[in-house]
Every structure is written in C-alpha cells, then in structure tokens.
Design a protein around this nucleic acid. Structure first.
Length: 885
RNA sequence: GGACUCAUAGCUCAGCUGGUUAGAGCGCUGCCCUCACAUGGCAGAGGUCGUAGGUUCAAGUCCUACUGAGUCCACCA
C-alpha cells in the first residue's frame, strides 16, 4: 500500500474523483420500483454564466441533501442543465458583433441565430464543467438545455394550451421597455432602484384666461411632449370649476383639456397631473377611460421622434435638459425640487427602463395563481425559513399579467402566424402550411420570442419528457412500467436564492399545477446571499467577488464547501481566510486517517460492526456511543435543512472527540486488536457521515481504507445506522475528561514543563469512581505525564500541594517549591465563596413557593441536585483547606 | 407608503417549543516542532445578550415602544 503524504493533496484527488464519478455514471438515476425517488432541481444556470459564490453555496447545499439521500437508499436524481438566457446571451454575441462594427440587423436574423448557436456550442458547457469541480452529484447523463428539441416542444405546447384556454392574449399596453436591449420586459425584469431625481413644476397656460396657469409636477419633463390632458381629482375644490377647460401645452402649443379622474391624489404637488397616455401606466388608464389621444414621442431606442417637434432626434435625457432650459426661458418652470423615487432598470443591462406603449403577448395570471396560492397556504409547498411564505403569498395575491413577448431573436419563437387577409392569428405547435380560413400560404410568423422564464417555469417536468410523456397514475404502481416523468415528478426539494422566488419558484408552482396537476416540489429552501467581509453583495463591477474556482485551486473544493456551509446563517460574509477552516479540517481528517491506517493490521480492517461493548475499554465504548449520538443528530439536522448545525456536529465529533480525545488516548495502545478495530470502524463510519459535506477527501480515504480492486464510490454506500447506546460510558468518560482537563489546567497554571513528570494522589470512597480511576490508570498517566499514580480512600495531608476535585474524586499534586501555597489557598477560598453564592441563589429559588408550585418537577429536581452537589463540594473543599499545610 | 429580517465575546455567527454557570470558529495571551497533522497540541483571557418597559416562579429566548443596520415589494405624477 502506498504511504499517504502528510498533506491532503486535494487538487490531484479532486481531478481523479470528478472524472471517476462521471465515467462510472455514479450519479445516474433510473426509475427503480424497489426504491423511492428523490428528485432535485436547481436553477439551471445561464449558458452565459460563470461560476460565482452563489452557485457554490447553492450547489453545496443541494449536493449535501443529494448525497445524503442517495446514501439513505433513495433513487436520487439531480436534474441539471443550462438556461438559454435570452437577453443575456444575445447581449454577449451582440458585443462580439460590435467588435466587428456590426449590429445584428446588419447580418440578419438567420445569420445571428447561427452565431448564437455557435457561441452556445463553444461556451455553453463552461458553467457545467465548473459545477463538476464543486463535486455536485448531478445526473450528468440527463443534461438538458432549455432550447433543445424536446424542451422547445414543451414550450410550444404550453403556449398553445394556454392560448386555447384563453389565458394568453395579445394587446397594446404600457410595458417596461429597455431602450438598450430594445425589448419589452416583464414587471419582474425591471428592477426598481431608489434614485435621486428632480420634481419639475411646470405652468400650463389656459387658452382663454390670460396669465392664468395650472401647475403640474413631473419627474420626467420630456414626456410632456406626449401630454394629451391634465387631470385633477373630481372633488378637488381648487379645480372643480376648471374641469373641461382648455390648456395650451407649452412649446408644442397643443390644446389639451382638464379632465377629472379618481386616480389623482389631490394632496400631491399642486393636485393637477399632466397626462401622457403613451408613456405612463397610470396615464394610460386615464387615457383609456377618457378616450384621450395616445401620442408616442419615442423610438424604440429612446430617441425622440417627430412627435417631439424640435426635440426630435434627441436622446430622452438630452431632450430632458434641453426642454428644461426652454421652459426656463419661457418662464414656465416654477421650481425644481430634489425628489427620490424608484426608477426601473433593466435587470440585464441596467439601463433605465422606459414605460412604453406597444403590442405584446401576455399571460393572464390570476387563474394560474389560485392553486399556487392554495398549495402554500395549506402547506403542500413549504418555504424554509418560513418567513418567505409571506413574501410569496404577497406577490401571488397581487399578481399581474405577465408580458411574455421579447423583441429579441435568441429564444423560443412565438408559435403564432398571421395571415395577410384574415384577422385571426393562427396559434399552432407545428408550422401551418396555409391559413385555415382563407387558404392562403402567405403567412408570417410572429417576429418575437418568448421570455426565457416562459421556458424555465416548465423545468421540473419538461426535463423528464413532458409533453411526450404524460402523467399517468397507473404507471406509478409496481405492475406497470414506470417512465421518467411519473417516477421522478414531483421533485422533493429546491434550493435557491430569494432573488428568483418570483421569476422562477412561484411560476414553477403555477406551471406544475396547470400542466401536471400537482406541485413541482415540496420544500423550497431559500438560502442567503454571499457577501464580502464588509457586507456588500459580491459583484463583478465592484471587484469584490471571490472566484470559487480560485478558492478551489488554493484551498480545495471540500474546503470551499465546508466553509461556505459553516458560515451560512442568514447572509454569508465571506473573505478568503474563511476557507482556511475548511482546508484545515480536510487536512485533519486526512491525518487522522493516516494514523489509523498506519496502525491497523489488514485483518482488523475487514470488520463490519464494532466489537461488543463488554470487551471494550471505556474510551472505545465512549467513542462508539458518541458516534451514534452524533449520527442521529446530524441526520435530524439535515432533514430539517439545518446544514451548518449538522456540520458543527460533525466537526465537533471528529476533531474534538475522535482526534483530540480518542486517538490521543489510544495512540500508545494501538497494538490491541479490539482498539484497532474500534478506531478503524469509527473512522469508516465517520467518513460515510462526512461524505455529503466533503465528498473528495472522504472518497479518497475510503478507497484507501477499503482497498478494493473495483472501487465502489463511497457515495453509493449506505449511511451507517445508529447503534444502541451505552450511557454509562458517556458519563464515566465525561468524568475522566474532566479530571484530565483539571489537572492539565493545574500543570499549565504552575508552569510545569510538558516533559516534566509529576506525582498525583487521588482519593475517593466511591467504588464506581475508584474502578474508573483504576481501569483508566494508563490513560491518566500518559495524558498527564505522571511519575506516580496513587489511589487513596482519604486525602493524604501533603505539604506544598495543589488540590482539585471532580465529582467526589479529589486529587493532590505535590508540587514542592513550584507552588505558592498561599496563593493556592486564596484561590480555593474564592472557589468556595462562588459556590456558596450560587448555592444561596438556588436555595432561594427552592424556597420560593411560586417556583415550587409552578415549575415542572424535573426542573425542581435538577435544582435540588445541583444544590446538593454544591453543598458537598463546599464541605469537601473546606476539609481540604483545613488539611492543606 | 407597505412587508420582512437582523442587533449576543475584538470580528463572523449558533443559541430550534422560555428552565442550571450563554456556545463555536477566527483573532488574542501563555506553554509546546510529543515519531498523524504547526493547515497541529495543551491551557487561558474575553459577554450586565442594542435601549426602555411589560408578561412569567423563571426572559438572550415571548409582547410593546424606541434606536441603529439591511432586504424586498409598491403606478403617487
């Protein structure tokens, strides 16, 4: 057997196992009637994406549960793939084109699509390869893309179905328009940011009243060029008599009327609002109600058009300042005040979004929201932590129709054709040859593509073969063959960041109910945001982003995973040094395993269960019991999605219990077969328990431990089961640990050099304690570097000694001139004093009638026991003090 | 404007249904290169749990108000 180096060489090990797992399809899942399915989806990363810490956290969490479930007997399928990310991908390729001095319109749609696909073929796998480096146990054989053939079929099918049900319609409305991407956006894609702007107060003169004006206020003065009315509240006394009067719109000198509408808030500004029906959603509503003219003053690129008069050809912001200048000259601008308001920005390019009137396709959301609301209210779908439930419900209750058409080329083309002569659009999954009404072949397909999220929301079932496969309750019975869809759908848990609750999570629930008749998942775990040490969101533009791949190179993937989870409370504050913790722990596991491997004979490596406790020494009994307790607690924590708690338990067990106590104790007793077996067995079990958290180091060590010619991945082994507990060992070992710690403390306090051996006298009359000391004499001697070990019934009077006590075991260390006896006595008196104080406190509580009558019995018992313990301690300490010379 | 979250050791956070003496990691101090590991070992210092009230036999934990930090949602121009 090759000897293991003293450092865990993670780079080599990670490369080896990544390719091994993939080559052997370790994580490939197929319908298996003898196993329960456990299906996982994660947000399919954008093809344009590169791995960031958010992915790191998301994948680690998901991978822990995946590996854990797999090792607990579930047929675990982690569906993975990429999202075509319409706008983002098109932007990337457009930038390439721009380097050649071209736009997509120069090369045309067909050529552009060729380039897009070429880009996808070349770079689309980047993020997937990066996910592999994290150790994500995805079902790589099932890799999907939201624009692959089957998936496209699903998208078309959904569009046609919803259209048939009357849930998809086309219409001219005010939508969020990105002038840079030149496409419509959904409400969710317009990110509102608090912006410091201005409120401009402008005087509009009356046509028939000289020198009289109505003052309106606006944050976007350039939109006045599209004004077709001024509105006031119908009950506003100031304006009541002016309703219906005509104003002259400055600059353009258009006549506009004063109208009355409830929408106007009489307390804001002057109480009069300019109405621009083509450039503001509220004004649009008023415009519709009052049959106003809709004047569009902008081209799709936010350059003002001929309707803007002399401002035509100017960009909207240039036009704004030019127009403000002009109004100043005309003395129509009464004031400009600072004004903070939320301005929408494109979520892809951060350009200020323009409310823009255009013809788009929409999904009617209210009917889809009903079952999705019910599912969460009734707990069929649960959010973790629970507070996200309210966020979801709030959005779902106030849901508005979803604008799904995008004026870009990369995406699913809208499956609608228009006939040159007939008004009815042809909505079809397959390309129609001729118009069904008039028979003409002169058909034009809708130019637009669908919102990327219109495909993402189908992910949990479109990836399992829907709509070719349909839900079939019969196929879930053992007598009928199972297909992927019926076996793997619905999925179990979903891990994601809060940013995409609305984009993706909520819409998946709606699609799940609409097309599959049931929720797509049971649990939604919302994890925190990864931030830098100062709490700022990690972002490329800020330059504060830590690259997970760099961390993997420097500290290892196990370290990355471990440290991310260790730090995941709510949001995570991460700096590079945090990964040292994970690296050190991986190295600790590595070296503990080296020690055990080095000292275990081959025949002792084959055991499948630990030696029975009656044959065993106390530390071995203890470590077996501790492991059982830890495993149970870890499993519980994972099931409740308390990952950092689970990791803490593991860390504490392995490092503190197994390494610092157990291995230190048995180090020089390794020749004992039973001890070898126990140490080896617990190590193996620990590796299994730790594998979901740190898959690489555990896998590598497992293979070294098992030495099989045909290695079976550790992730395919079942998790250990909990053993019955020997509780005596737990309390006895506890006492032993306390004694050793106390005496070590004394050694440190009196500056006794580590190599100096000292005498120690123990005294107790308790037979259990006596045998504890006798049975573990060797351990005590070696860990405490004792010269002599003596056991008495009563404490001998020894000069210049330090005395301590654990339970009723007293110990005396004759330290001679090393110790200042007066100081020691003072310390003991102090100890007695504090004990007396807390005893008094308990006594008071116990004599409180209210406490005794209202507190539960076990609490009272505990208090009583504590009091007794203290009393005994006080009297013993006093006695020791008297004997101390 | 509405909703939510957080405030505990120098730093980052645990503390799950209220119940002993509030925990961990990092950092800090002292002693150790002990033949698995200095990415290590042993020991230690450090907290009146943001402020003010309240409920309770009992509050870091529940309630109210306040202060401070942050997040999300919203068509007040």
């Amino acid at each position: 057997m090759p000897e293991l180096p003293p450092r865990f060489n993670f780079t080599e090990v990670e490369t080896k196992w990544c390719s091994y797992w993939e080559k052997h399809q370790t994580f490939h899942a197929t319908p298996n009637p003898n196993k329960k399915p456990y299906t996982i989806v994660i947000p399919p990363p954008n093809v344009t994406g590169i791995l960031h810490m958010g992915h790191g956290l998301n994948n680690t969490l998901q991978d822990i549960i995946a590996r854990y479930k797999r090792m607990n007997g579930f047929e675990t399928c982690w569906m993975v793939g990429t999202d075509h990310a319409g706008i983002a991908t098109q932007n990337v390729v457009e930038k390439q084109l721009a380097k050649e001095g071209k736009t997509r319109h120069d090369i045309g749609r067909e050529e552009m699509l060729k380039r897009l696909w070429a880009w996808k073929e070349e770079y689309g796998g980047t993020i997937i390869n990066q996910l592999k480096k994290l150790g994500s146990s995805c079902d790589w054989q099932r890799l999907r893309f939201t624009m692959d053939e089957g998936y496209s079929q699903a998208v078309k099918h959904v569009f046609v179905e919803l259209y048939k049900k009357g849930l998809i319609y086309r219409g001219k409305y005010i939508i969020n328009w990105c002038p840079r991407c030149q496409t419509a956006l959904s409400d969710e894609e317009a990110e509102h940011q608090e912006t410091q702007g201005h409120l401009y107060h402008i005087k509009y003169p009356f046509k028939d009243l000289n020198n009289q004006f109505v003052t309106v206020a606006t944050t976007r003065p350039e939109t006045m060029l599209g004004d077709t009315a001024v509105a006031v509240h119908p009950t506003d006394e100031r304006y009541r008599n002016l309703i219906g009067k005509t104003l002259i719109l400055p600059i353009l000198n258009r006549e506009i009327k004063i109208i009355a509408d409830d929408l106007v808030d009489p307390t804001f500004g002057s109480g009069a609002v300019k109405v621009t029906p083509a450039h503001d959603p509220n004004d649009f509503m008023m415009g519709t109600r009052h049959s106003l003219k809709f004047i569009n003053i902008m081209n799709p690129d936010a350059i003002l058009n001929e309707a803007a008069g002399k401002f035509a050809g100017m960009d909207r912001f240039k036009a704004r300042s030019a127009l403000v200048e002009e109004l100043k000259n005309l003395e129509l601008l009464t004031k400009i005040e600072p004004h903070t308001h939320a301005v929408g920005h494109c979520y892809r390019c951060h350009t200020v979004v323009e409310p823009y009137l255009s013809k788009q396709w929409f999904v009617k959301m209210k009917p889809l929201a009903q079952p999705a609301l019910k599912a969460v209210i009734e707990g069929t779908v649960k959010f973790h932590p629970d507070r996200w439930t309210k966020v979801y419900l709030n959005w779902m209750e106030g849901i508005r129709d979803w604008c799904i058409s995008r004026q870009i080329w990369w995406g699913h083309r809208i499956p609608v054709w228009y006939c040159a002569t007939c008004p009815e659009p042809i909505v079809s999954e397959i390309t129609p040859e001729k118009c069904p009404s008039c028979g003409t072949t002169n058909l034009q397909q809708d130019e637009d593509v669908l919102d990327t999220w219109f495909s993402s929301w189908l992910w949990p079932f479109a990836t399992f073969g829907w709509p070719s496969l349909k839900t079939n309750p019969q196929s879930q019975t053992p007598d009928h063959p199972m297909d992927d869809l019926n076996y793997f759908y619905p999925t179990a848990s979903l891990f994601t960041a809060s940013e995409i609750i609305f984009f993706w999570v909520a819409r998946m629930v709606m699609a799940g109910y609409e097309f599959m008749g049931q929720a797509p998942f049971k649990d939604v775990y919302i994890h925190g945001t990864v931030r830098d040490a100062k709490g700022r969101k990690m972002s490329k533009s800020l330059g504060n982003a830590l690259d997970p791949l760099e961390i993997i190179r420097e500290y290892g993937a196990d370290a990355l995973r471990f440290s991310l989870i260790m730090n995941s409370g709510q949001d995570l504050f991460i700096s590079k040094e945090k990964f040292e913790g994970g690296r050190n722990f991986a190295n600790k596991i590595w070296n503990a395993s080296r020690l055990v491997l080095l000292n275990t004979k081959p025949e002792n490596k084959t055991i499948v269960r630990p030696p029975t406790s009656s044959d065993l020494d106390l530390p071995s009994q203890w470590i077996i019991a501790k492991f059982g307790l830890t495993l149970t607690a870890v499993s519980e924590a994972i099931e409740q999605y308390h990952f950092s708690e689970a990791e803490n338990l593991i860390y504490d067990f392995f490092w503190k219990n197994y390494c610092d106590w157990y291995l230190e104790i048995i180090k020089n007793k390794f020749s004992d077969d039973k001890i070898q077996q126990t140490a080896f067995f617990i190590l193996k079990q620990s590796l299994k328990m730790m594998h979901p958290f740190m898959p690489f180091v555990t896998e590598e060590l497992w293979q070294n431990l098992t030495q099989s010619n045909t290695p079976l991945s550790l992730s395919s082994w079942p998790q250990p089961q909990t053993n019955a507990l020997t509780t005596n060992a737990l309390t006895e070992m506890d006492t032993l640990i306390k004694i050793i710690s106390e005496i070590r403390n004394i050694r440190a306090q009196w500056n006794i050099k580590p190599n100096e051996h000292i005498d120690c006298h123990f005294a107790t009359t308790n037979t259990i304690e006596k045998s504890l000391l006798i049975n573990n004499q060797g351990t005590i001697e070696s860990l405490l570097k004792l010269k002599s070990f003596q056991l008495h019934d009563d404490l001998p009077a020894i000069q210049d000694a330090v005395v301590g006590m654990v339970n009723s075991i007293k110990f005396v260390l004759p330290l001679g001139e090393l110790v200042d006896i007066q100081k020691e006595k003072t310390k003991m008196r102090q100890d007695i004093l504090t004990s007396e104080k807390s005893a008094a406190g308990i006594l008071q509580r116990l004599s409180n009638e209210n406490f005794v009558s209202k507190a539960p019995a076990d609490i009272i018992e505990k208090e009583q026991a504590r009091l007794n313990g203290l009393k005994q301690k006080i009297s013993e300490l006093n006695e020791v003090l008297r004997n101390l010379k």
